[in-house]
Design a protein around this nucleic acid. Structure first.
Length: 427
RNA sequence: GGAAGGGUGGCCGAGCGGACGAUGGCAGCGGUCUUGAAAACCGCAGACGGUCACGCCGUCCGUGGGUUCGAAUCCCACCCCUUCCGCCA
C-alpha cells in the first residue's frame, strides 16, 4: 500500500509509475474521492467538537442541579446529523482503502523499463552449463526410471500437478531443506522459524496476496483461512502490528514451508515434472530492515540465495526484472535462474525482492530509531533460498550420468547418509 | 465441543455512564544533585487522521453494531488469549 498523502501530492509521479508497470489504476478517481472525503470529514469533526463541548456543559449543569433538557434536545439533533455524516465518511474511507489496496508498488528508479520478461536484464552468469556426451533426459523421465518420482499415482490420489517423492527422492528433498536451513542459519545469520502453513485473510492482505489474487490460492471452505502460497506470508506477518526497537534491526528470518498455489491461468504450462506443482517445498528468506539500508540488504539477500546454487555446483544466472514483470508488491526484484537441460534454458528458482514500506504499511510493522522517536515503517524483503522442487529437478538433470544414475553434490552427501549416487533400481 | 475468567498506552496494571486519552508502576526523554555514575527528587512524554500551522480539532481502551445529550465503562454479536473438563497427535 502506498501512502495516501504521498499520492495526494504526487499524482503525476504515480501515474507515470503505473504506466511503467503497465497497470491500469484509477488515480483520478482516488484523488477526487480523497478531496471530497476530507471536506466531509472536516464537517463532521466540527459537529463532533460542538457535541463534545455541549456534553460537557450538560454534565456540569446536571451536577449543579440545573435543568439541561433544552440543550439535550438540541444535541439530539446534532447527534443524528453526526450519525448520518459518519456513515458517509466511513463509506468513502472504505472505498479509498479498497482503491489503495489494489494499487501496486512503485518501481524503484534502478528498475529498467519493459513490458514483459523478455525485457528483463541479465546481471551475471555463474557456472557453465555442462556439455553432455550423451542425450540427457528430462527430470520427469529420470525420476520415474530411478523410481524416485511418481506422478501417475499422485494423479490418482489427488490430481494433476501433484507428485509423490519416493525413496532417495524423498530423502533428497529432505536433505535439501536441511542443507539450506543450516546454511542460512549458521553462515548467513538468519533465525529459523517454523511457521503456520495456513494464514488468515488479514495476513494475506498484509503481504499483498489479497485482495487482488484470491484466485491464485486455496481457501479453506467456510473460513477466511488460506493455505500459504509461500512462507513469505506467515514470516513477514510474524511481526505484524508491532513497533520494533530500532536497535534490533535488521531482522533476518528463514523458514521452510510447503507452498500451495492454485495456478489458475497456467493451464498447459510446464505440465510435466516438478516445475509447476500445486504443492512444493521452499526455504524462504525474509528481512525487516531500516529504510536507508534496504537496497544494500537486497544485494546481500541475493548473495545469500546464490550461495546455495554455488555450493550445489549448479549453473545459474541473475536477472533484474523490468518494470512490467514486477510482482504486485515489489519495488525491485532479482530472479535467480538455474540451468535446466530439458528446457534448454535458465528457469526461475528464486525471486528476491525489496518491497520497501509497501508491505509494512499493510501489515503495520514499524520501528523506532531511538526510544521516544517517531515510529516509522520498516522495509521488508524476501527471497527464495531456494525452491526445493526445482532444485531437485536441476540436480537430477544437471548431474545425470550416461548410465542413468545421478551424482549427488558433495555438500549434500552428509545429508544423504553418505550416499554419493542415486542409481537405477535393478531391472 | 462444554465451563469459567480475561483482552486498556512500548511493557505491567487500575478504572466499570459525565471532570478519563485514561490512576499507578516499569522502561524512555529533559533537569536538579554528583568529579562521573547510581540512587533520590522535579518535569516531559501514546498512536492515527484533518488543518498552512511544535497551535487547534477529531478518532482510538480486542473487532463490529446498539443504547445515551455523553460510553473504556451498559446491551448484542464476533474474534483472540488463559485455566479446567472432554477428545485427540
Amino acid at each position: 500500500m502506498l501512502d495516501l498523502r504521498w499520492i495526494r501530492n504526487h499524482p503525476e509521479e504515480l501515474k507515470a509509475a503505473m504506466k511503467r508497470r503497465g497497470a491500469d489504476v484509477p488515480v483520478d478517481e482516488l484523488i477526487e474521492l480523497d478531496g471530497r472525503w476530507r471536506e466531509k470529514l472536516t464537517l463532521v469533526e466540527r459537529l463532533k467538537a460542538e457535541r463534545n463541548e455541549a456534553s460537557e456543559a450538560i454534565g456540569r449543569a446536571k451536577r449543579e442541579g440545573k435543568d439541561a433538557s433544552e440543550a439535550i434536545a438540541r444535541m439530539k439533533e446534532v447527534a443524528a446529523q453526526i450519525k448520518e455524516l459518519d456513515q458517509e465518511v466511513a463509506e468513502m474511507e472504505a472505498r479509498i482503502k479498497e482503491l489503495l489496496l489494489e494499487i501496486p508498488n512503485v518501481p524503484h528508479e534502478s528498475v529498467p523499463d519493459g513490458a514483459s520478461d523478455a525485457d528483463n536484464v541479465e546481471v551475471r552468469r555463474v557456472g557453465e552449463p555442462r556439455e553432455f556426451d550423451f542425450e540427457p533426459k528430462p527430470h520427469w523421465e529420470l525420476g520415474v526410471s530411478l523410481d524416485i518420482l511418481d506422478f501417475e499415482r499422485a494423479g490418482r490420489v489427488t490430481g494433476a500437478r501433484f507428485a509423490f517423492l519416493k525413496g532417495l527422492g524423498a530423502r533428497l528433498e529432505r536433505a535439501l531443506i536441511q542443507f539450506m536451513l543450516d546454511l542460512h542459519t549458521e553462515e548467513h545469520g538468519y533465525t529459523e522459524l517454523w511457521p503456520p502453513f495456513i494464514a488468515n485473510a488479514d495476513s494475506m492482505t498484509g503481504t499483498g496476496q489479497l485482495p487482488k489474487f484470491a484466485q491464485d490460492m486455496f481457501r479453506l471452505e467456510g473460513t477466511d483461512y488460506y493455505l500459504i502460497p509461500t512462507a513469505e506470508v506467515p514470516v513477514t506477518n510474524y511481526r505484524k502490528g508491532e513497533i520494533l526497537d530500532g536497535a534490533s534491526l535488521p531482522l533476518y528470518y528463514t523458514a521452510y514451508s510447503p507452498c500451495f498455489r492454485a495456478e489458475a491461468g497456467a493451464h498447459g504450462r510446464d505440465t510435466r515434472g516438478l516445475i509447476r506443482q500445486h504443492q512444493f517445498d521452499k526455504v524462504e528468506l525474509v528481512k525487516l530492515v531500516a529504510p536507508e539500508t534496504s537496497y544494500d540488504e537486497l544485494e546481500s539477500l541475493v548473495r545469500d540465495a546464490e550461495s546455495v546454487l554455488q555450493k550445489l555446483g549448479l549453473p545459474y544466472r541473475v536477472t533484474l526484472l523490468c518494470s512490467g514483470d514486477l510482482t504486485f508488491s515489489s519495488a525491485k526484484t532479482y530472479d535467480l535462474e538455474v540451468w535446466m537441460p530439458s528446457y534448454g534454458r535458465y528457469v526461475e528458482i528464486s525471486s528476491c525482492s525489496n518491497f520497501e514500506d509497501f508491505q509494512a504499511r499493510r501489515a503495520d510493522i514499524r520501528f523506532r530509531r531511538q526510544p521516544g522517536a517517531k515510529a516509522e515503517y520498516v522495509h521488508t524483503l524476501n527471497g527464495s533460498g531456494l525452491a526445493i522442487g526445482r532444485t531437485v529437478a536441476a540436480i537430477l538433470e544437471n548431474f545425470q550420468e550416461a548410465d542413468g544414475s545421478v551424482t549427488i553434490p558433495p555438500v549434500l552427501v552428509p545429508y544423504m547418509g553418505g550416499r554419493t549416487k542415486i542409481e537405477p533400481p535393478r531391472e
